[in-house]
Design a protein around this nucleic acid. Structure first.
Lengths: 168, 168
DNA sequence: CTAAACTTTCAGTAATATTTGAAAGTTGGC
DNA sequence: GCCAACTTTCAAATATTACTGAAAGTTTAG
């Protein structure tokens, strides 16, 4: 297989995976492209490789930087900006987990806490079931949240590192 | 807070979370509604509570059954079908993990394996970086896949149960 | 067998999300 | 200060996804 064809397939695969997980396709594709590029790429390069517009390329690179997955590299003697991706997949996973926790899990956790505390009349069967469900889900989400915290704390990496190796 | 208002907020929260994770909003909302309902609901009930059309309700209930999160309940003396959701949140998580693994992770894993095996010319810097990236990601995704397998195997639940309790 | 009660399908419509491209904004060198 | 090189923004266009409602299909009781 030609490298170009393999690249195309990789970018496509990563894009599909992204969109199945709520990340927009182009963003995942830009990410994929930067992942396999040995040196930083300019907006221009990205536009060409993925056949997307300047605006789109710019926006997605920007988003990736907000996710802390991509950084700006200034190349000596060049006026334009170049971008490169974090390459360590474990680090990538940690950063994504961190962001999604903050953006998505924490708000849900707060909402659930609120619903738990809201004195809802729990005499009826409906009230009881509601309370029980919210309690259980709250408990579960809280544990997941704590679990992610644990996984993110550097000093506990030995633990997850070991667990991770177990999975081979 | 009134129960109805709390319900509304819960359904909305669950719907938002769903859409952030690639599950469509209505499906997550139907699921939320069934989760907090002490007894099975008919299509009619779902339509009313969520203000959605018959077709939509039917389709989403159907999808939830494909995900193995909802089941049909036949009520004696009633002609119509009633639906109820699995209530154990740990079980819900397991079923979702199982499905997503099958539908989303496995195809990616296969594709990565394919790209790894495809003899791509790895002499250039580009070829080397490509190979390295694909190898790393393949390894990572494979471990995650194995990890999910482990978590799903009943006889290893004691392990994850313990881990889970640690997260309190 | 028939009709009512119910479920499923699906073409058309509506809502949402993404992308474009050109104009506006910014920056750095001279 | 001014211009060229570059980046950012955003309204409009396009593409994607979800929803509706009515018609077609199915089931069951009588």
């Amino acid at each position: 297989m030609k490298l170009d064809e393999a690249k195309r397939q990789f970018i496509e695969t990563w894009g599909t995976l992204g969109s199945e997980w709520g990340i927009n396709r182009s963003m995942a594709q830009v990410h994929a492209l930067l992942l396999i590029s040995p040196e930083p790429l300019s907006t221009e390069d990205i536009m060409e490789e993925l056949n997307i517009s300047r605006g789109n390329a710019n926006m997605n690179v920007r988003d990736l930087m907000n996710w802390n997955l991509v950084q700006k590299n200034l190349v000596a003697g060049e006026r334009k900006e170049f971008f490169s991706a974090e390459k360590d997949i474990w680090e990538i996973a940690r950063r994504i987990a961190k962001e999604r926790k903050k953006r998505e899990i924490e708000p849900v956790l707060n909402k659930l806490k609120q619903l738990q505390d809201a004195e809802v009349d729990a005499k009826s069967a409906k009230g009881k079931e509601f309370k029980k469900t919210v309690d259980n889900i709250h408990d579960f989400v809280e544990r997941m949240d704590k679990g992610v915290d644990m996984a993110l704390r550097a000093d506990e990496n030995w633990f997850f590192g070991t667990l991770f190796k177990l999975m081979k």
